[in-house]
Design a protein around this nucleic acid. Structure first.
Lengths: 239, 239
DNA sequence: GTCTATAGCTGGATAGAC
DNA sequence: GTCTATCCAGCTATAGAC
């Protein structure tokens, strides 16, 4: 083999393998960014590899297909979020000087996915978009990567809220999930309605508002049971 | 002109114009159904017109383009929802024997879009998908069709919750919107986690659970203001 | 007003040079 | 491992017969 002229290499200080890894990472970063901005259906491989400064063939070489790329983007940070969630949950303690257990648990659930330690806000928005698009692949990925840790949180919530019925528990978790997804998806609706006074795209600020609201929600009274819609409408909970 | 043989007409009992309207309606129905199931990006005009028993050219004849069809599907029921919202809001009364005003207001906001009087559950899911996809066109349509009535609800909420700060008001409305959108989008996540014990795809049942939860949320204490994230974390609201 | 046929693109994926 | 070139499927939109 002939000596390789340095000018021919995009980054002559690293080996060929490392160059491959660098391209792979650039494609993952570009895909995450564009998926988070336009959804997974609204972005072509060509746009992604162009953003990454590579060719569309490179994406197929590294990831096999577009859905393979989607899964790789997801997998890169999802396991880390689940692990940090579980670690934060394990550190929750009912002790004087700390927030109530419920606040700690809610924060442990929301914070790892929103604070930006795992892929930043673009990965958070990417997950919001994925959940919103609600494809079969997305559902499968969520079950695989998150069902375990989410189950631990359900158990923790049952423990601190022993009087809450299973039905009410799941409905409140539903509200928590919906709020998280809607916040991550960043539709801009509340910014428009509030003329910018409320900005959930600042995920740190969002956490500080959401944790107390969700905790308050979990502490609410049991949903009244009625035999008809009218009965439930006419006998709502008392504040 | 020669007499038209009855067999040549798909529906000989109506006039040509009425036939055109029927096809137009079948296309709108098919588009709403498929958009609600697969999002707007995941469905082709071919699939829609095939479902409607028509040809892809018919969609362009009636609606000009795919985005024209999308707007037509939206517009068909959106104004009706906004009107019914405003009508229900106008009928809210603080009287003995009725639910508290706040419950009435929350229900007036949520019910017209979820109860199925305007396009059924498929139109509700269609809106959820649109909001999730969060396109420029969607944002524009929402401002045009819903900003007026939503502004009336903000005023009504200010009136029954005079001590709530503007910031807290918008954050709680954000949670209400997120919960509504997530419920309409029907990701199936909570059904999977609860083994079917909790099913938000039953929108009547969902309303009966969501109205008391959201009302309770609005009645929560003010979000504590801290100078740092740590201060806010260590001093959450007291339940 | 509805159809067939097709123009004109854009997308994912692959072959093969280097 | 990365590129260029290309195949082919699927899409929107339109032209023109009926």
């Amino acid at each position: 083999m002939t000596a390789l002229p340095l000018e021919d290499s995009r980054d002559a200080t690293v080996t060929g393998d490392a160059r491959g890894e660098a391209t792979r990472k650039r494609i993952l970063d570009a895909a995450q960014k564009l998926f988070s901005e336009h959804g997974t259906n609204g972005v072509s491989l060509r746009a992604i590899t162009s953003e990454a400064g590579a060719n569309s063939a490179a994406a197929n070489y590294h990831f096999g297909s577009k859905s393979g790329l989607l899964e790789a983007v997801f997998a890169r940070h999802a396991a880390g979020i689940a692990q940090e969630r579980e670690a934060m949950l394990a550190q929750c303690r009912a002790e004087p000087g700390r927030p109530p257990m419920l606040e700690q648990i809610v924060r442990a659930f929301l914070e790892p996915g929103m604070r930006g330690e795992h892929g930043g806000t673009s990965f958070a928005r990417f997950r919001g978009r994925m959940l919103a698009e609600n494809s079969e692949q997305t559902r499968e990925l969520y079950v695989r990567y998150f069902n375990g840790s989410t189950g631990q949180f359900l158990d923790a919530l049952r423990k601190v809220l022993p009087d809450l019925s299973e039905t009410d528990l799941f409905w409140r978790v539903h509200v928590m999930l919906g709020t998280m997804v809607y916040t991550l998806a960043n539709t801009g609706r509340i910014q428009a309605l509030s003329n910018g006074a409320c900005d959930p795209s600042d995920l740190d600020d969002a956490l500080d508002h959401l944790v107390p609201m969700i905790a308050h929600l979990f502490r609410g009274p049991a949903t009244p049971t009625g035999t008809s819609d009218a009965a439930r409408t006419l006998n709502p909970i008392q504040a």
